[in-house]
């Protein structure tokens, strides 16, 4: 039975989800970018300054992709867990190669 309360709850839930997605996209996106470009700067087989410049000039692409994915993906659960997984994997790989944040 669709009562008024129900639709109200739905609206609040929807807003909360939007806010959460923005939060995930902005900060999650930023840290994915940081980790991915750090990883590139650390592992690219070029002199260290070149590796850094390559990493920095391409870094923003990660941000854009992640941001679009966070809003394009239908399931919020997938986004949330996916982001946590992605950050863990990237951080793990970075520390594995001897990098740090």
């Amino acid at each position: 039975m669709p009562s008024r309360d129900n639709t109200n709850n739905k609206a609040i839930l929807y807003r909360a989800e939007v806010l959460a997605r923005f939060f995930i996209a902005i900060f999650g996106g930023y840290y994915v970018t940081v980790l991915a470009s750090s990883l590139l700067a650390l592992t690219l087989p070029t002199p260290r300054l070149d590796a850094l410049l390559y990493a920095l000039t391409t870094g923003i692409v990660f941000y854009a992709i992640v941001f679009i994915w966070v809003f394009g993906c239908r399931s919020f659960k997938k986004v949330f867990l996916g982001m946590i997984g992605l950050l863990c994997i990237l951080y793990g790989t970075l520390t594995h190669f001897g990098g740090s944040l």
Binding site: A51, L52, L56, T57, L101
Partner: peptide, 12 residues
């Protein structure tokens, strides 16, 4: 970018 992403520079 050097301000926005300072961390990659700190790696090496």
């Amino acid at each position: 970018i050097f301000m926005l992403l300072p961390q990659p520079a700190e790696q090496r």
